[in-house]
Design a protein around this nucleic acid. Structure first.
Lengths: 151, 151
DNA sequence: CGGGAATAGTTGACCGCGCAACAATGTCGT
DNA sequence: ACGACATTGTTGCGCGGTCAACTATTCCCG
């Protein structure tokens, strides 16, 4: 075991600002969506993913991969969304194990209703505080981090 | 309600890379701590906060504020840490409502054991992928965001 | 072809967290 | 000094998530 390279003051400050800012940001976005539209941030993201998919549907596994959560998490989330009427399950015809989650009209409408407020909140709490340079650095840095963590 | 300013492609890319990278990062740190030292990331952070406090103790409310979580979350977390022997509750003598959470010797030892691996993971998954400029931009940007969200 | 290995989705058990409600205590104005 | 109000920490409840185990199906290779 090599000598530990502790974080210096600047790294500490970066790490804490990032962690705490992120915690506050996600919390704020969750609250905004919940109070204004009755959707959790997690559910909102699933609706977005489905709305972008061809035919407004995705295999359960693809939804799990795309949302970076577990399969069981997706199972429960889709059940939740189905109960709300925003998603329906459709059997796969080429794989009898498979299930599609498909956005309903009501789901699309809910998304359309929730999106403007959410985007405004994302701007207000994040992008309004970023310069062009900030944004570019954040984009590139997190893209590299994500690639590393997926590898 | 004004016209919604949607996120352009670059903002979308930034937003997704950040969200997904963060999700993967936190998950990786949690797993590393859990498997190598039997501590969750959340608990680790509480131990750090206590270790930095004068007398290795903090009021419950201060611990909640410092960790950016709810009071009830801290109550349960401290109970958990108490059961593990890493923290003890100490009554406040100047406020009979008050409770201190105080790091025990075992808690300090656990922290000392877990810290090197955790810091290595933070470097490997985050700081190793950041240039000096990246870090400065992230530090400043999230510091502003945090201040805004606290305001 | 046939049978072991991989994969899809669900379920059960459990965990951690936030909110709202609560009792106990402290604070402050009049 | 007293009553209205604020604050502290805990709790009940529900949500959303993981992991491990399970069934059903598909894949793949000898």
């Amino acid at each position: 075991m090599a000598e530990t390279r502790w974080l210096d003051d600047d790294e500490q400050a970066t790490w804490r600002a990032y962690l705490e800012g992120t915690r506050l940001l996600i919390h704020a976005l969750d609250r905004q969506l919940e109070t204004d539209s009755g959707v959790s941030f997690a559910d909102y993201e699933l609706l977005v993913l489905l709305s972008e998919a061809p035919g407004h549907r995705l295999r359960m596994r693809d939804l799990a991969d795309a949302s970076f959560t577990s399969r069981s998490g997706v199972t429960r989330a889709v059940t939740r969304l189905e109960d709300a009427g925003w998603v329906r399950r459709v059997e796969c015809d080429d794989d009898r194990r498979g299930m599609h989650a498909e956005l309903t009209e009501a789901g699309a409408a809910k998304l359309a209703e929730a999106a403007p407020g959410h985007v405004s909140a994302v701007r207000e709490h994040m992008f309004d505080h970023l310069s062009e340079a900030d944004r570019a650095h954040i984009r590139d840095a997190y893209t590299r981090m994500r690639a590393h963590l997926l590898g």
